[in-house]
Amino acid sequence: MAENVTPRVRVPRDASAGEVITIKTLISHPMESGQRRDGDGNQIPRSIINRFTCDFNGENVLDATFEPAISTNPFLEFQATVPESGTFVFTWYDDDGSVYTEEKEIAVS
């Protein structure tokens, strides 16, 4: 069970219609690969974020599968076109079953 998992997102507050905006996301997470062993030689079980999605007004923007080689505190930066005002919903899926979501509004003029 991963502790202190906090999602963070940066989306511009406003944009013009059809503009391509840059979105930055980061979730603090140990991303334990499952390959390491502890001091006693026991395998440390894998515990990673295995999937990340971004939706805009119900439409999927990005759906990414994360693998064990992805670093601690995975940072993802991507671009999206915003046709209208609405809400971005970001979702991270943890190996332990936890789901973390974050929402950001954007106003399009």
Binding site: N4, R8, R10, K24, N73, F75
Partner: peptide, 12 residues
């Protein structure tokens, strides 16, 4: 600060 990984520890 969003890009600076050190700020995660500052938050903690």
């Amino acid at each position: 600060d969003f890009d600076n990984p050190g700020m995660l520890y500052v938050e903690q």
